[in-house]
Each structure stands twice: as structure tokens, then as C-alpha cells.
Design a binder for these strands. Sequence first.
DNA 1: ATGGCACCTGGAGCGCACTCCAGGTCAACC
DNA 2: GGTTGACCTGGAGTGCGCTCCAGGTGCCAT
Lengths: 119, 119
Amino acid sequence: MSVYTPAEVVEETGFSLDTLRYYEKIGLLEPVERNAAGQRRFSQEDVGWLGMIRCLRDTGMPIAQMLRFAELVRAGEHTIPDRIELLEEHDRRVAAQIANLTERQSYIHHKISYYRSVL
Amino acid sequence: MSVYTPAEVVEETGFSLDTLRYYEKIGLLEPVERNAAGQRRFSQEDVGWLGMIRCLRDTGMPIAQMLRFAELVRAGEHTIPDRIELLEEHDRRVAAQIANLTERQSYIHHKISYYRSVL
DNA sequence: ATGGCACCTGGAGCGCACTCCAGGTCAACC
DNA sequence: GGTTGACCTGGAGTGCGCTCCAGGTGCCAT
């Protein structure tokens, strides 16, 4: 059962130490284990969960919804259908984002071509 | 030479009236023409420019950089190479965004599959 | 001429997601 | 035993991009 120091988790997840503390404070992370000196010692599970958080965050999910997802996970196995629903809805938003970006990108390409044509 | 009322521009561009005023105030939009009563009358050109703004904004360009682009446009034809450079750099960021989203999306898909498998 | 509506201004306020700070603890190494 | 460095806490501050508000003007239809 490996544990991680704060510095290791910062390294692994790319979140800042302040962000990790903030996530714990708002309940996005369950209270993290402490050593005798009161310093955080993250579990493998914490780090895995942070990977999920990073994925959701980087795809634009608001914290409020990540909190909802966190609650479902804590509530136990019977919430799996709800979790699927939440992730599928999010997936649709991600797909929409990608489609939108792709469309905008082609506009940018056209603009670049136009600029090249008038040089 | 068609002109547009604020309400029409809101309708066309999807920006709120407050946002349009804000963009004008910070100089993202050049001072808009006014009628005798002091109300804004947007030109075709304004609306076209707002289309560009929407594209850049929706692809995540910060306002500071849009301002820089606006300055280049105002400065005249000789800035076209700079504009191309700016747009190409932005294009690379957009491509990176799309790639990142696509990768994250596959993580979400795996998670959904996993949840389905344990049902 | 009265009411309603679209619009005006300057400036304050907001929501999000952090980020920073002051002051403190503890362990380890020179 | 002194210093360094990683970590702790509660709470204040930040940056971005709007968004809202109060108070006012002018036009138009009833």
C-alpha cells in the first residue's frame, strides 16, 4: 500500500499543492490521511481519483458537477447507473466542444488563407 | 450600406448587449457609430468583425490577445504577416486543445465501459 | 399626453477556480 | 543547536470576463 507525499502528488498529477488542499477543503477529495506530524500522505486511490478529476476538469466540467460525481462515488455501487448517466452527458458536451472547435478552426484556416492570398 | 441596431447585433452575434458595450469600452470594437439620439448603429463591418471575435473567443483566445489582433488590423495592411503569425500560433493551440479533448474523451469512454461492465 | 420600450452612461458587483500570505510545526542534516 | 526545507492552517486576494444596476433620454403607439 504505497503512499505519496504532497510533493509527489504535485509531480504526478500536475495540480499545485494549493489546489490539492483546496480540493480537499471543498470535499472534492476525501479527507486525506496524515502522518504523525499532521502532514498529508496520499494513497494510491487518492492519486487515481485525482486522475479522474484532471480528466473531468480538463474537459471543462465545473467543480459543482465534479462534486456531484464525487458524492455518487462515495454513496456506493448502487449509484453506478447515475454515474454512467453523468459521464455520458458530459461526454456529449465534450463531443460538442470538439465539433465546435473543429468548425472554428476551419474558419481560422480560411482567414489565414485569405491573408496569404492578399500578400 | 446596411446598419444594425443593438438588438439586431445581439441576435446575429449571440453576444449580450452588455458584452458589446464592454467590447467597445475596452477597444476590442472601434467606437461604434451613433444616430441622432446617441444610440449605436453597427455597420456591416462591425458585425463581420464580431464574427471573428466570436471565433477567437470560442476557441479560447484571451481578450488581451484579441486586443493585440485588433490593433494589428487597425494598423493597416503591412501587419498582415503579423496577423498570419498570430492566427497560426492560435491555430496550433486550438489543435492542441482538440487533441487533448479527444484523448480525455477516450478516458471517459473507458470509464463508462468499465461502469457498464460491473453492472 | 401618457405609457412603454429600447437604448444610454458610469460604476459597482459577481462567479469561478484558484493563488497567495503570514505565521507556525516538525524532522533532518551540518 | 541552528538552519533549512517541506509541510501545516485560516483567511484574504486575484484575474478574467462579463453582468447588473440606478437613473436618465428619446421615440412611438394608444
